[in-house]
């Protein structure tokens, strides 16, 4: 029983139930919209957590993949008339290829050098998006058509909520499976001791590359869907601050905790909503909250809670 609760399968069930019941509390489309953004961020954070939390490789550029995913499907569907069911997979392919191409040299680095390289990669992506205005509309952004399947348009917050909620449950299921498998243990071993993993036969480079690409694809898929959901995208989607927000979600919720990533996404998405009351001081309060939470809860929210529950069940 205790094992089952701590293993995450119970969490997956709980997550599904909460997501199914949550709309009962939504009063208006605006609530749905916020919930959808929470889900979007949660999916990215769950993917990024595989890289940062489990494999221990920092990325300060993941929003770049998110933004690139959004723009590839946006450009293909808006300018070249691609069907969205083709343009979205294409976005994943483009991002996966890019991530794979840069992963090897980048993941040879560690610590602050790795932070610098990933940060640089993310910024380069946004600079390109901003500069190639003939294709992307430049800093002003571009309009993206909705998803259309057999003449039926995916429209309305409730549908989008259902889609994103289902995707999050799927993402969490995949992540939990992966972590509790030989591949997942190898990844965690890379974090715990790279050389111990190597002598145990783990091709550490290969695994780092693999998880880098996987987490990039998580971000790209979410970015692509976001583009069609909001109908309008700007290069800021891939900006440096967005990358920082994603990493913060992972750290805030608790590194190496899939549910932590979701909680982190929830908190960090809702925080600005709660802070709108502070008006002009929003950035100040946001910065202060960021510092305070990390300083006082360095392990993150969920692992702290889990320790408590584990103790209680013993």
């Amino acid at each position: 029983m205790r094992n089952w609760i701590l293993s995450g399968r119970a969490g997956l069930l709980l997550l599904a139930v909460v997501l199914a019941l949550a709309p009962l509390g939504f009063g208006n489309p605006y609530h749905y919209d916020i919930a959808i953004h929470v889900l979007i961020n949660a999916i990215v954070a769950v993917g990024l957590n595989l890289l940062v939390g489990y494999a221990g490789q920092v990325s300060l550029g993941h929003a770049g993949f998110f933004g690139l995913g959004a723009y590839v499907t946006g450009i293909l569907s808006a300018h070249y008339g691609w069907h969205t069911l083709l343009s979205i997979p294409m976005a994943l392919v483009v991002v996966a290829v890019l991530a794979f191409a840069v992963a090897r040299p980048i993941l040879r680095l560690s610590g602050h050098y790795l932070a610098m390289a990933t940060l640089g990669l993310g910024i380069l992506i946004t600079i390109v998006l901003r500069t190639e205005g003939w294709l992307t509309g430049g800093p002003d952004g571009m309009i993206v058509p909705p998803i259309e399947i057999l003449g039926w348009q995916l429209f309305g917050e409730a549908y989008w909520y259902a889609l994103m909620a289902a995707l999050l449950v799927l993402a969490v299921w995949l992540a939990l499976n992966l972590i509790d498998s030989p591949v997942g243990r190898a990844l965690r071993a890379v974090h715990g001791s790279d050389v111990a993993a190597q002598v145990a036969g783990v091709n550490t480079t290969r695994y780092k590359v693999l998880i880098f690409v996987v987490s990039a694809v998580f971000a790209a898929l979410t970015g692509a869907l976001t583009a069609h959901y909001s109908g309008f995208i700007t290069p800021d989607l891939g900006g440096f601050m967005r990358s920082i927000e994603f990493v913060t979600m992972v750290v805030l919720g608790g590194m190496a905790s899939t549910f932590g990533a979701i909680v982190g996404a929830l908190v960090l998405t809702l925080l600005p909503q709660l802070l709108t009351g502070f008006d002009e001081l929003e950035m100040v309060v946001f910065g202060a909250v960021l510092m305070a939470v990390i300083i006082f809860m360095p392990r993150g929210l969920v692992p702290s809670l889990r320790t408590l529950i584990g103790r209680f069940l013993r």
Binding site: G56, P182, R185, A186, R188, A189, H191, G192, S193, V195, A196, A197, A200, G201, V202, A256
Partner: peptide, 17 residues
């Protein structure tokens, strides 16, 4: 060179990779 982010048993399981 123990992976402190894992359980004792999981450390051994990694050895079987």
């Amino acid at each position: 060179q123990i992976c402190m982010n894992m359980s004792a048993l999981e450390n051994v399981m990694v050895g079987r990779h």
